[in-house]
Structures are given as structure tokens and as C-alpha cells.
Amino acid sequence: MYSFTDRELAEELEKLAQSGVKVRVYRDSREFNDENQRGLSTTAMLLAGGVAVRVRDSRDLMHFKSYVIDGALLRTGSANWSPTGLKRQDNDVHYEVDSALAGQFKSMWNRASNATSASAAP
């Protein structure tokens, strides 16, 4: 997730993780750092709630606003996970069941260069 400041959504992901659902969030390093400096990041909440978080350790943009459910259902679109992106802006969304396409997220998650937790991000 590129921008993620929606605390309500973070709370729902925490609940899922605490109920036993495997929840993982992959972040863009620049946006993550900017959010932390502004005190807006939800990442500390997620980590405290048992959500696995990795941050792309690269200056290159990680601009996805997507998620995968059960390794097959892909949701993608233009909206960031922020109150503005989800409730006030005009954004698109697309859902597709495609395990091969969804599997590309696994390769991003497993990059050796990722910070393994948000606290380790540059």
C-alpha cells in the first residue's frame, strides 16, 4: 500500500490478524517515512496488532493500492487507503480472480532488500 492513514481500516486489519487471519501489509518507503514524520502512519498500530509489515527498501516508488485475498482474489485500483482516497476522491477499483496475477504480490513481499519490519525502514 502506497499511502495508508485510514485508522478505521487499520483497526479492521488488526481484528482480522488477532482472529487468526494472516494479514500482511507491504509499504512504500518514502510514503511510510513521510507518514511517520507527520504522525499519520497506521503502521505502528498494525504491528502492535499482529499484522506483518514490510517496507520496500528502495528509492523506487511502490505505488500499488491493492490487496490479495486467499492467494487468488486481487483488488486493485487508484485509491490510497486514506480517508480522502476512500471517501472523497474519484478513484477506480477492479476485482479479478487470478492466482497467477495475485502471486506477483508474493514476489514483492519476499524481496531480500525489503525491511523486514516497519521499524527497520530507512
Score class of each variant (00 low, 15 high):
Met1Lys: 03
Asp6His: 03
Asp6Leu: 02
Arg7Val: 07
Glu8Cys: 13
Leu9Pro: 00
Leu9His: 00
Lys15Phe: 10
Leu16Ser: 13
Leu16Asn: 11
Leu16Phe: 09
Ala17His: 03
Ala17Gly: 04
Gln18Leu: 07
Gln18Ile: 00
Ser19Gly: 14
Ser19Leu: 09
Val25Arg: 04
Val25Phe: 00
Val25Leu: 08
Arg27Thr: 06
Arg27Ile: 04
Asp28Cys: 05
Ser29Gln: 12
Asp34Leu: 02
Asp34Ala: 03
Asp34Tyr: 01
Glu35Thr: 02
Asn36Val: 02
Gln37Leu: 11
Gln37Phe: 06
Gln37Cys: 04
Ser41Met: 03
Thr42Phe: 00
Thr43Glu: 05
Thr43Ile: 03
Met45Thr: 10
Met45Val: 06
Leu46Trp: 06
Gly49Val: 09
Val51Thr: 09
Ala52Met: 07
Arg54Thr: 05
Val55Arg: 05
Asp57Met: 07
Asp57Cys: 02
Ser58His: 06
Ser58Arg: 05
Ser58Gln: 08
Arg59Gly: 12
Asp60Ile: 11
Met62His: 05
Phe64Cys: 15
Lys65Glu: 04
Ala72Arg: 15
Arg75Phe: 15
Thr76Pro: 00
Ser78Pro: 13
Ala79Gln: 06
Ala79Glu: 09
Ala79Leu: 09
Pro83Arg: 03
Thr84Gly: 13
Thr84Ser: 14
Gly85Val: 01
Lys87Leu: 04
Arg88Asp: 12
Asp92Ile: 12
Val93Asn: 09
Tyr95Phe: 15
Tyr95Glu: 10
Glu96Cys: 15
Asp98Met: 01
Ser99Leu: 08
Ser99Val: 14
Ala102Pro: 11
Gly103Arg: 02
Gly103Lys: 03
Gly103Gln: 01
Phe105Arg: 05
Asn110Ala: 14
Arg111Leu: 13
Arg111Ser: 01
Ala112Glu: 15
Ala112Lys: 15
Ser113Leu: 13
Ser117Pro: 01
Ala118Asp: 05
Ala118Leu: 02
Ala120Asn: 14
Ala120Gln: 15
Ala121Asp: 04
Pro122His: 05
